[in-house]
């Protein structure tokens, strides 16, 4: 959402904690459990990559250019005869790393801005929120592209770029939380006994406001994995020969007609992984917000423009 709308603010302040109904918890936890299990398998496989397949992901094999999936190469080989399955596992490491790094940067920066903004209010709040408005008004994909051209293409650069286009949502969530908590009794109490403001902020307010941020973080990891693939697609991804799901998928475009499996596997991995994050996020949100009034979807509306 662009400039602070009453709608958005009304929603942000509604994260009240109430006990969820039994059925809802059960159903949603089922999904979350499936999501968590899938994620666990993916992460373990990726970490164990070399042990699982026993091949080097970058080993070029002139005799096996573009072979379709077989018993020897479960997911076939790519245009340089490299084992696709091995590259999927190594690529997963990179994609997940980017996902988590970008989330940490985005949520960290956003959380900080939101906390300061909400806590100090006044001019600080006004300026910070206008900056958020500005950043939200520029279509995310435009921002992503502009920053990609300017910043660079290392794993950290890419995470930074994604984080810089995603901090606005956590900032708003955090601000709303802090605004709500600031007036609560124990904060007032801490203030009245003369605690310094930063101490009040980080000791008393932030820890209590962090729950909704965790929900957002989960969603953001998934979004970042998708964003990485989009950046690759547009030519600003991880450098070869290091595989990532994004750059594998992008490379595969050229061979859609001759080697379709190259396009299918990395895409399936992205969908499975991101879906798992989304389901976990949904369940977490529900546990915190049993009224079920707004999905992660309601919050992350602008994220859509990043990938369309």
């Amino acid at each position: 959402m662009g400039a602070a709308s009453p709608l958005a603010e009304a929603q942000e302040s509604q994260l009240l904690i109430r006990p969820p109904s039994f059925w809802r918890r059960l159903l949603l936890h089922k999904l979350a459990i499936v999501g968590a299990a899938v994620l666990l398998v993916v992460i373990v496989l990726c970490l164990l990559g070399p042990v699982v397949t026993g091949t080097n992901p970058n080993a070029i094999d002139f005799t096996a250019f573009g072979s379709p999936p077989s018993l020897h190469h479960l997911m076939g080989t790519d245009d340089l005869g490299r084992d696709e399955f091995t590259r999927i596992l190594f690529g997963g490491r990179i994609s997940l790393l980017v996902g988590f790094l970008a989330m940490l940067i985005g949520v960290g920066l956003g959380g900080l801005v939101g906390a300061i903004s909400g806590f100090f209010g006044g001019t600080v709040d006004f300026i910070a929120m206008r900056v958020v408005d500005i950043a939200l008004s520029i279509p995310r994909l435009f921002l992503l592209l502009l920053l990609s051209v300017t910043i660079g293409q290392s794993i950290f650069d890419i995470s930074l770029i994604i984080g810089l286009t995603a901090w606005m949502y956590p900032a708003r969530i955090m601000r709303a939380q802090v605004l709500g908590l600031r007036s609560l009794n124990y904060v007032e109490a801490a203030r009245s006994i003369g605690s310094r403001s930063t101490r009040v902020l980080f000791r008393h307010i932030v820890p209590n406001a962090i729950a909704p941020l965790i929900v957002n973080s989960t969603i953001q990891v998934g979004q970042a994995i998708v964003s990485e693939s989009v950046m690759s697609f547009l030519g600003y991804g991880i450098q070869p020969p290091t595989p990532s799901w994004g750059n594998m998928l992008t490379n595969a475009q050229t061979f859609v007609q001759t080697a379709p499996w190259l396009a299918i596997f990395p895409g399936v991995m992205i969908v499975i992984t991101v879906l798992a994050f989304n389901l976990i996020g949904d369940a977490l949100r529900d546990a915190l917000d049993p009224t079920g009034q707004k999905g992660a979807l309601g919050r992350g509306r602008n994220a859509k423009q990043a990938t369309a």
Binding site: L31, L249, A252, Q253, G267, D282
Partner: peptide, 16 residues
């Protein structure tokens, strides 16, 4: 589940 899957899909992959 479907809508979360829809959101998890890189648009260019779906297109391809």
């Amino acid at each position: 589940v479907l809508s979360y899957a829809g959101m998890a899909m890189p648009v260019f992959w779906l297109g391809i």
